[in-house]
Design a protein around this nucleic acid. Structure first.
Length: 478
RNA sequence: GCCCCUAUCGUCUAGAGGCCUAGGACACAUCCCUUUCACGGAUGCGACGGGGAUUCGAAUUCCCCUAGGGGUACCA
């Protein structure tokens, strides 16, 4: 039997980190079993669904490199299938029209709450007579379709992550609404729990892999599978990604959409890597790996049962590892958009850019770090930090800078070696330590007392033809 | 309130009754490397939530407690 899995996001927001991780685990399981991975957009909530979010989800998955074998399918285009299934249940008496108004349901729940009972639908319209239904309809009430939930009944299923999970149908909150009815009295948009099952049956999904927040839905869905006489898939409920406080991660916790991580300068390789680590561990203890490498050994037996807190430090470390080891050509291409966004003009020679990338790569944690780090190499009018000004102002550094400027003018082709010896000889002639030369030079060239390797910086600036100018400009600081 | 789930260093985790004086990674600290900041290398710090039970022996099995999380819609 071919493994068929799916990711079913609803387009009510940008691609969420939780959705992305669920997608990744589905992808891993599909790849491990040479199965198929399907994308389905669950857009039945017309109030909240928006096309822009669908686009964002599609782009986000693409950015992450999570490719699917078929889809995207849209639930709003599958209305006929849902309608047919609803009628099937209606005809068998497994579903019925419920005419309760929202106010009525609200009041019922309030009363239950007051009596310290669990809020639930009391199935009051399950056995309406034809006459009662006509009366409600004539009174202008709009019905919904409810699915009959037999209770009590103990339901146990094997979850590939958690083992046996047991649920009593009496804790499901009464007969569930599975579809709405439109103004013409036609069965219209289905609700989540119903649409999911119809689609998973139609798409022959063998394994439902989703977040732990769906456990309660599983019982409801199994009942629908049974009512439809369909084969029940295997379920795997992944632990949730928690925030620093240990609660389900939400918009208040900073970044929650993949898009935001992209903007912050995280690379998809690192992001995927980190998401896999949140809840799964490699049997060989590796921590840096690609999705393909993980797919080879991925099993649900090694997925944790408890939620994992999102840790920025670890993500940052992983991202830095990828950046440090990335091919300079590739890294350069990824950096250029960030430099452009910062207003720099990276249209210098490719070789110059590659040298720059090699220079700063070991210091990068996120791509955006490269903006501040390379600013002094790109811009024309250098800005100086207070510490740099303090050093450049000192009378004692003037002769050093003058000597440096002269020496640079006398050295038409600067190489790493000639630059080093140039500094050495100035130190010797002025009877100073090398550090006493390096420090003012750094300040003059970069405007800061800290920064990337000085010799490399000097070379890069000299290639742009601005090294001498910078030193002369620094000389004017008082 | 009710239902379900979970519980090892600050964080992510390894651990399937003796291999555990509990291993690794991040973070943190110190040292080395280094003109600076980083990178890299080394060392250190640091945990089995509590109580019972089973057993010759429990981080690992069972029960209770506690704590945390999730769910409880005409959202998905």
């Amino acid at each position: 039997m071919t493994v068929r899995v799916r990711i079913a996001p609803s387009p009510t927001g940008n691609l969420h980190i939780g959705t992305a991780r669920t997608a990744l685990f589905n992808w891993l399981y599909a790849k491990h079993n040479h199965g198929e991975f399907i994308l389905r957009i669950e857009d039945t909530d017309q109030e909240r669904s928006q096309d822009q979010y669908t686009q964002n989800i599609l782009e986000g998955l693409k950015w992450l490199g999570i490719d699917y074998d078929s889809g995207p399918f849209f639930q709003t285009q599958r209305l006929e299938q849902y309608r047919a299934a609803v009628h099937l249940l209606l005809d068998q008496g497994l579903a019925y029209y419920c005419y309760c108004s929202e106010a009525e349901l609200e009041q019922m729940r309030e009363e239950q709450k007051a009596k310290k009972q669990a809020p639930r639908y009391d199935n009051r319209h399950r056995h309406l007579t034809k006459q009662q239904r006509t009366e409600f309809a004539n009174a202008g009430r709009k019905p919904v379709i409810r699915f009959v939930i037999e209770e009590p009944r103990e339901l146990t299923w094997l979850d590939l992550v958690r083992g046996d999970v047991t649920w009593n149908t009496r804790d499901l909150g009464g007969d569930i609404v599975i579809a709405r009815v439109d103004d013409q009295g036609q069965v219209s948009l289905p609700l989540y729990n119903f649409a999911v099952v119809i689609d998973d049956i139609a798409m022959e999904i063998t394994h439902v892999i989703r977040g732990e927040d769906h456990i309660a839905n599983t019982a409801k869905q199994i009942l629908i599978y049974e009512a439809l006489g369909a084969e029940i898939p295997k379920f795997s409920h992944l632990p949730l990604i928690l925030n620093a406080q240990g609660a389900k991660i939400s918009k208040r916790d900073g970044a929650t959409s993949v898009f935001e991580f992209q903007q912050m300068g995280y690379v998809p390789e690192a992001f995927n890597n980190y998401m896999v680590l949140l809840g799964w561990s490699d049997p060989n203890g590796r921590e840096i790996f690609s999705p393909s490498e993980v797919a080879e050994v991925f099993e649900f037996e090694r997925v944790n049962k408890s939620g994992a807190r999102f840790d920025w430090d670890k993500l940052n470390w992983i991202n830095s590892q990828y950046l440090h080891n990335m091919d300079p050509e590739i890294l350069c291409d990824r950096l250029i958009p960030f430099w452009q966004a910062a207003g720099f003009n990276p249209n210098f020679e490719r070789n110059w850019l590659i040298d720059l990338v090699k220079l700063i790569a070991p210091s990068l944690t996120v791509l955006t770090d490269a903006v501040d780090m390379a600013r002094y190499l790109f811009i024309d009018n250098l800005e100086y930090t207070e510490e740099a000004i303090a050093i450049l102002k000192a009378e004692s550094v003037k002769p050093i800078l003058i000597a440096l400027a002269q020496a640079l003018k006398d050295t038409p082709t600067l190489t790493p070696d000639s630059a080093s010896s140039l500094i050495q000889s100035i130190a010797k002639s002025l009877n100073l330590k090398k550090g006493a030369i390096m420090k003012p030079l750094r300040c003059a060239l970069s405007g800061d007392i800290h920064g990337p390797d000085l010799i490399s910086s000097l070379l890069l600036l000299a290639q742009r033809g601005v090294a001498v100018t910078r030193i002369e400009t620094a000389l004017e600081i008082n």
